[in-house]
């Protein structure tokens, strides 16, 4: 894993850069950027968070995302304009690079590629009292049957692996939840191949899935509409001063 982003190789169609963001930095670190970089809408959303810790994470997420994207595009971080697709997926306005982000607890992932059909999701495992009901409603029949045969420990692994893959897929399509999670199925037990999906998003074989190994008790996946999906994993560390941003 590279620990620095001083050089970013060019992206091709089968390439996805995954950046890991640390959201647990001290508040002071991002505060100076926040005033300068964040839109009113960003601030409104952040202010809805109750706990200072969560607000700090949200600031860290948004500021780093801007800094990261600006380094790809070589434009000032505060000049970036975001827009959303019909179903809410965020895009960079007038840009050739595409991104998708996911955050869970104090970590975030940003996937960057050249295709708009890119999606990433990360889920820290946590107790879910309604896991069986979520499976019943949102898994395909094959997935349900398989999941029921597992012991409790495996159930947890497969649930979060599958969920991350499914979510990465619906985010990649830009359609989001409206697509229906139960309509997209994955290979088992390794959830790295799309087997079923609604026809408006092409054949399952048009899509590539890459699972990401990030640590203990966390599932993550990236989906790309491409023949293959090559992932480069980076750790993001911003070293700008606000005036340079």
């Amino acid at each position: 894993m590279q620990r620095h982003r001083d050089f970013i190789p060019a992206l091709d169609n089968n390439q996805v850069d995954i950046w890991q963001l640390d959201l647990e930095a001290p508040t002071e670190k991002w505060a100076p950027y926040a005033a300068q970089l964040l839109s009113e809408e960003d601030k409104r959303k952040i202010n809805r968070l109750i706990q200072p810790q969560h607000r700090a994470r949200a600031v860290a997420m948004r500021v780093q995302l801007r800094l990261l994207l600006s380094s790809y595009l070589n434009v000032a971080a505060d000049a970036l304009r975001f827009t959303t697709g019909r179903f809410g997926k965020p895009y960079l306005d007038q840009s050739t690079i595409m991104f998708n982000a996911s955050h869970s607890n104090d970590k975030a992932l940003v996937a960057i590629g050249s295709s708009p059909f890119i999606g990433v999701d990360m889920e820290f495992w946590r107790p879910l009292d309604d896991m069986p009901r979520l499976v019943e409603r949102h898994f395909t029949n094959t997935e349900k049957l398989f999941w029921r045969t597992l012991d409790a420990e495996q159930q947890e692994t497969v649930f979060f692996d599958l969920w991350a893959a499914k979510e990465a897929f619906i985010k990649a399509t830009g359609r989001g939840l409206g697509l229906g999670l139960a309509r997209c199925g994955f290979s088992l037990p390794k959830t790295n191949q799309l087997l079923e999906c609604p026809s408006e998003f092409g054949e399952p074989s048009d899509w590539s899935c890459q699972r990401l190994t990030l640590g203990e008790r966390v599932s993550a996946a990236v989906m790309l509409k491409a023949d293959q999906c090559r992932v480069r994993l980076y750790q993001f560390e911003a070293e700008f001063s606000p005036s340079q941003g």
């Binding site: 959303k45 809805r48 869970s104």
Partner: peptide, 21 residues
């Protein structure tokens, strides 16, 4: 972790599909 009000968009509230589900 969020203040949620009647006019809030549920998609803003539940930022992940799992939360929404």
């Amino acid at each position: 972790d969020q203040k949620i009000q009647l006019q809030d968009n549920i998609f803003d509230v539940g930022t992940s599909s799992l939360k929404l589900a």
